[in-house]
Structures are given as C-alpha cells and as structure tokens.
Amino acid sequence: MSIAESSARWETAAELATRLGVSRATIYNELKRGLPSRKIGRARRFDPRQVDAFYEQS
C-alpha cells in the first residue's frame, strides 16, 4: 500500500449511504455480499475506491 492509499479518506456507513443514495441498512446488508470494509475499533470504514470497484464488478 502506498502512502497516498493509506492517507485516503475512508467513509463511514452513513457517508457511503448518502453518496450511493441508499440507506445505512442497505450498506450493512451489502457487507453480507462482500462489500469491502475495514473495522477500526468499533467503527466500520469503507474505502471509496474499493467500494466503486466492488459495484463495477457486480
């Protein structure tokens, strides 16, 4: 992972839901389908590039 990748802004479920125009519940349901995310402490974060790639492949 490059420095640029590690410093990218990771989104919360609420931010991702807003960007995609869906509910937070939909985001959490998509995790079951393999939506890429990272668990940081108790919080789950989403890399926008990985999420976009996930939906391009779907």
Rank of each mutant, 00 (worst) to 15 (best):
I3C: 04
K32P: 09
Y55I: 04
A53E: 14
A4N: 00
E15L: 07
G21D: 14
F46I: 03
T18K: 09
M1L: 08
K32R: 12
R9N: 08
Q57H: 07
R44W: 11
E15Q: 11
T12D: 04
W10H: 06
V22L: 06
A17T: 05
E30K: 07
A8N: 05
F54L: 04
R33V: 05
S23V: 07
G41R: 06
A13K: 02
R49N: 12
W10G: 00
L20E: 05
G34R: 01
S58E: 12
Y55C: 04
M1I: 05
V22I: 14
R38S: 11
I40R: 07
E11G: 01
M1F: 04
A53V: 05
E56S: 08
V51P: 02
E5M: 11
I40H: 03
K39T: 12
S2P: 12
A43Q: 13
A43F: 11
E15G: 01
S37H: 12
A4C: 09
T18M: 11
R19H: 10
S2Q: 02
L31T: 09
A25W: 11
G21V: 12
T26M: 14
L31N: 00
A4H: 04
R33I: 03
K32W: 05
S58N: 13
E11N: 02
Y55H: 04
Q57R: 13
G21T: 14
I40P: 00
P48M: 10
I27T: 03
S7F: 00
T12C: 04
K32I: 11
E30S: 07
P36D: 01
D52Y: 05
A43N: 09
T18A: 14
Q50W: 13
L20V: 06
R49V: 13
R9L: 13
P48E: 05
I3T: 08
S58G: 13
I3E: 10
R49S: 13
Q57P: 03
R33W: 06
P48V: 09
E15R: 04
I3G: 00
A43E: 15
G34T: 00
I40S: 03
G41A: 07
I27D: 02
S23L: 04
M1W: 02
R44M: 12
E30W: 06
A4Q: 08
S7N: 06
G41Y: 03
R24Q: 15
S23I: 06
F46P: 01
Y28V: 10
E56W: 02
I27V: 14
L31Q: 01
K32S: 12
T26E: 10
A14S: 01
R38H: 06
I3N: 04
I27R: 00
L16P: 00
S6R: 15
S6F: 11
P36V: 04
R44I: 15
E11W: 14
R24V: 15
I3Y: 06
R33E: 11
R24S: 10
R44T: 10
Y28N: 09
D47P: 03
A17W: 06
G34E: 00
W10Q: 05
R24C: 12
Y55T: 05
T12W: 12
L16A: 02
E56F: 03
S23D: 08
T12R: 09
K32D: 13
G41I: 06
R19E: 10
P36T: 01
P36H: 00
A13Q: 02
E11T: 03
E30N: 08
L16H: 02
N29F: 08
R44V: 13
